[in-house]
Each structure stands twice: as structure tokens, then as C-alpha cells.
């Protein structure tokens, strides 16, 4: 058991494995996205209060879910890297951060484009919107901190500490609409309660979330491969890898 884990936790064995996994996740993401978009636009009915504008929910909510979920996974990898002092988990955390930042920004921007026609404002400083903005700063801070330290091992440690401190913010985002008066409405989907939306709308939203999830795995694997090549460019396995692929130099 142990032997197996250690085998796959070294970059030279994980690199080709990740390469074989990427197409599967990319295909899954595409298929879920096509079905999800079809349901979002052609099957899901018009909303009784928001008309067609509510369809922004099909990108906004999945993006917001991913922004929080990726942060938790990233912090988990960072903690694993910190406690085992291992390379691969730290690289996974580093690979997830930019995608998490993109989904956070997407949640903020699509929310803004939904808030303007529905609420009447592009932006308000309520607890939900403010805490999501802080999440964006946490991602950007993590990326900036990691790239500002030359020694990769030290950069991993500093980044991991920041990522772990920032975890506090995730439950704040999630429960902000419950704990405080916010302009943002409460949760449509919550644990222990029936979803407050019709099944076809829910199905579209879940499929889009699934598509984003598969996309995230594919893209994180792509990025972790880049990080491995860049960090270990002097090692023999990278040289072998580089010489085995075609193309001009």
C-alpha cells in the first residue's frame, strides 16, 4: 500500500499518468457542458419573477461553488504538502490556485451582470459580495506570495500557511446570507432542505457545476505538468521527457 502511494507521489511517475488522465476529464467536461447548456437554455422554463435574466444562474452559481470548493481542495493539498514535506501535494495546490481565482472572478462578474438588471446595482457592499471579493484577494495573495519566493520549498511553506489561514473565509461566504442581512438572496440549494427551484432548472445547474468540476481537474492536471517541468528542468526525467517529444527547438 505504502509503496504504491510513494510511487505515484513522485513527479516522474505522476507526469505521464496525469497526461493520460487529462483527455478523459476534458471529454467529460465537454459532454456535461453541452447537455447542461442545452437544458439551461431550451428545457429550463422562464422564471416567474426574473424572466429570462435568471439564466445567468447557470454559470454564476456553478462558478461560485467551484471558487469555494477549489479553495478547500487547494488548502487540503497545501496542508498535506506541509505535513509530509512532499513536493507533489504542494505542486497540486499551486496548480489549482489560478483556476480558483478565475472562477472567483467569474462568480463576481456574472453576479454583477445579474445584479444590475435585477437589483438595480452592479455592486453592493453586503456580506456575501464582500466575502467573495476577499476570496479573490486570498487566491491572488497566494499566487503572488508563491512566485515572490525563489526557493520552491520555502515558497510552498509560505503559500500553504496563507492558504490555511484563508480557509476561515469559506464558511463565512457560505453562511453570510444566513448570518447577516444581505441584499443577496438566501441559498436555493442547502443541506437538509428541498431545493427551492423546479427540477429542470436544478438539473441544468448541477450539470454545469459537474462540467466546471471536470474542467477544473483537467486544467489543474495540465498546469501541474507545466509546474513539474519548470521546477525540475535540470533533472534527468524531464530531459528524457523533453527529448522523447517531437517538435523543433
Amino acid at each position: 500500500m505504502n509503496i504504491n502511494w510513494f510511487k505515484y507521489s513522485s513527479p516522474q511517475t505522476f507526469y505521464p499518468l496525469a497526461g493520460r488522465m487529462i483527455p478523459w476529464f476534458a471529454w467529460a467536461a465537454s459532454i456535461f457542458a453541452v447537455i447542461g447548456l442545452y437544458i439551461s437554455f431550451f428545457i429550463a422554463p422562464t422564471d416567474f419573477q426574473q424572466g429570462e435574466a435568471y439564466r445567468i444562474i447557470f454559470v454564476h452559481v456553478p462558478a461560485a461553488w467551484m471558487s469555494m470548493f477549489i479553495y478547500m481542495v487547494m488548502a487540503g493539498w497545501a496542508a498535506l504538502g506541509l505535513s509530509l514535506n512532499a513536493r507533489l501535494p504542494a505542486m497540486m495546490a499551486q496548480a489549482l490556485a489560478p483556476t480558483g481565482a478565475i472562477f472567483t472572478l467569474l462568480a463576481l462578474v456574472t453576479g454583477s451582470f445579474w445584479g444590475k438588471p435585477m437589483w438595480g446595482a452592479w455592486w453592493v457592499w453586503d456580506a456575501r459580495l464582500t466575502s467573495e471579493l476577499i476570496l479573490l484577494f486570498l487566491y491572488l495573495g497566494f499566487i503572488a506570495l508563491q512566485s515572490s519566493i525563489d526557493d520552491p520549498r520555502k515558497a510552498d511553506k509560505a503559500g500553504a500557511l496563507l492558504a490555511l489561514v484563508g480557509v476561515v473565509n469559506v464558511p463565512i461566504i457560505y453562511f453570510s446570507v444566513k448570518w447577516w442581512n444581505t441584499l443577496h438572496q438566501g441559498s436555493t440549494i442547502s443541506m437538509g432542505a428541498a431545493p427551492k427551484m423546479v427540477t429542470t432548472m436544478l438539473l441544468g445547474m448541477l450539470l454545469m457545476a459537474l462540467a466546471f468540476w471536470m474542467y477544473t481537474i483537467a486544467v489543474a492536471l495540465m498546469r501541474v505538468r507545466c509546474i513539474m517541468l519548470e521546477r525540475e528542468r535540470a533533472s534527468d526525467w524531464v530531459k528524457e521527457q523533453a527529448l522523447s517529444v517531437g517538435g523543433n527547438t
Binding site: M222, R223, R225, C226, L229, E230, R233, A234, V238, K239, E240, Q241, A242, L243, V245, G247, T249
Partner: peptide, 15 residues
């Protein structure tokens, strides 16, 4: 693009 650049650089180093 990033992957191609990294592989190219590694190839140069290897050669």
C-alpha cells in the same frame, strides 16, 4: 503554450 515552452527549454538544456 506554457507546456510547449517548458518542454522546449528542457530540450535545449538536455541537448
Amino acid at each position: 503554450k506554457r507546456s510547449a515552452v517548458a518542454l522546449n527549454l528542457a530540450k535545449l538544456l538536455a541537448q
